[in-house]
């Protein structure tokens, strides 16, 4: 079996978000980039599956649709333990475009199991995995919180409303994974960090598929309104403020 993990390059979760003056673009100055946390967990689980497979999992590779500045993030995935990496040299414009480009990587590499994070922590679109399965005509399961291999059989755990569900499914498969898939993301060791630059990172140009959407403007959420403290004894003042100032009652 060959596993591919899709990696997106996202701003560190503590980044202060800013846009350009026209509010049409995210301002990347000073931003620290990381592997999307769900993708990092997916990679960790993929490596665990490979290590526990007794050779049945041939490789765990990673793919990303991104410009060259995402290569440190991709090499981090190699340092963590991925065997090879693929970068489609394009801005990840929208989910359709990204899924279309990733499909080419899946096709040419003949991957049987593709893991995608449930969403990227920047745009939270939650669409790439499903679309990729559609492009490939692969089986697809979303919100996967556990995955195990037993010979050719794949067992999946999913969180569902009020409980859990266990599924058996066959490859080829796109599993869209969420928290729980691995306990913690794997920390790269020295050997991995040293080896990362020596592992293959293949760059390809995007194919004909184009984005279906484009960004018009961005808006930051409104700042939290100031909080007024009212003495618990003073119910009259509370009612007065709710009525006259907040106009809530």
């Amino acid at each position: 079996m060959k596993i591919l993990v899709c990696i997106s390059n996202v701003p560190d979760t503590t980044t202060k978000i800013r846009f350009n003056a026209e509010k049409t673009e995210f301002d990347k100055t000073g931003v620290q980039w990381i592997i999307n946390p769900w993708d990092e967990l997916a990679l960790t689980r993929a490596l665990e599956l490979k290590e526990g497979s007794g050779g049945a999992v041939e490789c765990v590779d990673v793919a990303s649709v991104n410009l060259i500045d995402a290569e440190p993030t991709i090499r981090k995935a190699l340092a963590i333990g991925a065997d090879k990496a693929f970068r489609v040299n394009a801005m990840p414009k929208d989910a359709y475009f990204v899924a279309g480009q990733l499909a080419e990587v899946v096709k040419s590499g003949g991957y049987d199991l593709v893991l995608c994070g449930i969403e990227s922590s920047d745009y939270n679109g939650s669409a790439v995995g499903g679309m990729l399965a559609e492009f490939m005509d692969y089986n697809s399961v979303s919100a996967v919180s556990g995955i195990n291999l037993d010979g050719g059989k794949i067992t999946i755990n999913r969180e569902i409303d009020g409980g859990k569900e266990v599924l058996n499914i066959s490859a080829p498969l796109v599993a869209v994974v969420q928290k729980g898939i691995a306990i913690d993301p794997r920390i790269p060791n020295m050997r991995g960090i040293m080896m990362a630059r020596q592992k293959p990172l293949t760059v390809s140009e995007p194919t004909g598929i184009d984005a279906l959407t484009s960004f018009e403007t961005y808006e930051l959420p409104a700042p939290k309104a100031a909080c007024k403290m009212i003495d618990p004894e003073n119910v009259k003042q509370l009612i007065d403020l709710l009525h006259n100032e907040a106009k809530a009652i």
Binding site: P72, K76, I187, M190, I193
Partner: peptide, 17 residues
Amino acid sequence: SEEQLMIQQAARDYAQR
């Protein structure tokens, strides 16, 4: 360098986690 930053992050992750 990229490697130096990765080592720093690896140490930070292990310590903080």
